[in-house]
């Protein structure tokens, strides 16, 4: 199988203007993933499925991940004037990582027997910019799985043929798989 970098370059060549990034994975599993942008995701998915040496014809797993806003503490080097001399010192700084929802797809090629290729899509935030393009038009195996992501995480998939709740009931309002989900406030008692 081609490396993720090679695949990234091929998508970039086929879809000029696509913003792609390789997301490293520190685990021994060594499964890095490819972050796609909203505008080109559908085209990139088609390309991955149809390009002769790639042929990722099988989208095995599609799921969501919730990343609430978090702050990380890290050491940064700062230049400071101490007694009139500029010196470089290390300081502990806090950095805010904005929250988002993520859709993760594990792709395999049944024809060529290779995989997994992992692609990710990220929403703008966790509140009002939660729309992602649906990949169900490319791989129908995503149909129920994207419904599940919509149901449990609250990502709205544009272009999905039948986006309804799948596991929770119709009148249910919240998204239980979010990290800040609180059952009492969700109207579960009402129903």
């Amino acid at each position: 199988m081609q490396t993720l970098e090679q695949i990234k370059d091929r998508i970039a060549a086929a879809l000029p203007g696509a913003r792609l990034a390789v997301i490293a994975n520190a685990s021994p599993a060594g499964q890095p993933s490819l972050l796609l942008d909203h505008e080109h995701a559908l085209e990139a998915a088609r390309f991955l499925r149809d390009a002769p040496e790639l042929r990722f014809d099988y989208a095995s797993n599609a799921t969501g991940v919730d990343w609430p806003e978090r702050t990380v503490k890290e050491r940064v080097k700062v230049k400071k004037m101490i007694d009139g001399v500029e010196k470089e010192t290390e300081e502990l700084a806090e950095r805010k990582i904005p929250g988002c929802l993520e859709a993760v797809y594990h792709l395999y090629s049944m024809e060529l027997g290779q995989g997994p290729l992992i692609i990710r899509l990220r929403t703008g935030n966790r509140t009002d910019r939660v729309t992602l393009p649906s990949l169900t038009p490319v791989w129908r195996s995503c149909e129920f799985q994207e419904r599940e992501i919509f149901d449990l995480f609250g990502i709205v998939f544009e272009g999905h043929p039948d986006l309804r709740r799948i596991l929770m009931w119709d009148g249910f309002e919240d998204h239980p798989m979010r990290k800040d989900y609180a059952p009492a406030a969700s109207g579960e008692a009402k129903a």
């Binding site: 994975n25 520190a26 685990s27 021994p28 599993a29 499964q31 095995s60 797993n61 594990h106 997994p116 992992i118």
Partner: peptide
């Protein structure tokens, strides 16, 4: 486990 992710799969009697 160290921070990171992994996907593992087997051929169960019902499928992947």
């Amino acid at each position: 486990p160290k921070a990171g992710e992994a996907y593992g799969r087997i051929e169960s009697p019902k499928g992947e």
